[in-house]
């Protein structure tokens, strides 16, 4: 009961920390996804220049540390007159960094769509946009979701760096609680909440993955299995 009371006491602070962490996670993930799609498509482009640009950008953001990127955005850019609030800075840093990793997942998944499928689109004279949007991407999507899921969980944990640019995120709040409510309570709650947030995102992405697989007929429902057998016999 003491635990519950402590929790209720701490809840307003915790909630504001959760909001920051969720905001960074969602914003960072949205930007990272956009970056991953653009760079991933660039990486398989027939145009050498686009491939080159994509390669350099991906290597740069993967090869330099997230903390340095964050500090650079937060402390160096303002010296050039570009001042952003902490939240936006955090989202951009997470988006660019995880987007670069995501680009590799996107590229790998697009390449993993069988060559026969690409050739099928050529034989039907599909334009690049039609081929991607209607045929290749939906198949690659099912393949990339497990990788994106991993990155999402890492991104959620990566949001803890936000406290380095003075954001009062979940980690910051938990660290504060340590002083008032004790170490065990604070970090116990911290573990649990991060776990629940990661689990939430992860479950959503897993559901998307299953849906995508079902659309490709990879995980047929029972009704479909019966029909398939009937069809093969017919």
């Amino acid at each position: 009961m003491e635990l519950l009371e402590s929790l209720l006491d701490a809840w307003p602070q915790l909630w504001s920390g959760i909001q920051i962490t969720l905001g960074l996670s969602l914003g960072g993930a949205a930007l990272a996804f956009a970056v991953a799609v653009v760079l991933g498509l660039g990486a398989i482009s027939e145009v050498a220049v686009l491939r080159g640009i994509s390669r350099v950008v991906v290597e740069f953001f993967r090869g330099t540390s997230l903390v340095v990127q964050l500090f650079w955005l937060f402390f160096v850019l303002p010296q050039f007159g570009l001042r952003m609030d902490s939240m936006l800075t955090g989202i951009i840093a997470l988006g660019l960094n995880y987007g670069a990793y995501g680009a590799e997942v996107v590229r790998g998944s697009l390449n993993a769509v069988p060559k026969a499928q690409w050739e099928g689109t050529t034989a039907l004279s599909m334009s690049w946009v039609t081929k991607m949007r209607r045929i290749i991407w939906p198949q690659a999507w099912a393949l990339m979701l497990p990788g994106l899921n991993n990155l999402m969980v890492m991104l959620v944990k990566g949001t803890a760096l936000a406290l380095l640019i003075f954001l009062h995120d979940l980690t910051f709040v938990v660290d504060n609680l340590r002083r008032t409510e004790g170490t065990y309570f604070a970090f116990g709650v911290g573990f649990a909440l991060y776990y629940l947030i990661s689990l939430g995102f992860s479950s959503i992405l897993r559901a998307l993955e299953l849906r995508a697989q079902r659309k490709l007929g990879l995980k047929p429902t029972r009704a479909q299995t019966t029909k398939a057998t009937a069809g093969a016999v017919a």
């Binding site: 026969a116 050739e119 599909m126 334009s127 039609t130 209607r134 045929i135 939906p138 490709l216 007929g217």
Partner: peptide
């Protein structure tokens, strides 16, 4: 190897290119 599109049903496989191309 047929190369049908697995993300579409039979009819969609056939109508896809006439509609979009």
């Amino acid at each position: 190897q047929f190369n049908l599109f697995p993300n579409m049903n039979v009819l969609e496989n056939i109508t896809e290119a006439p509609v979009h191309v």
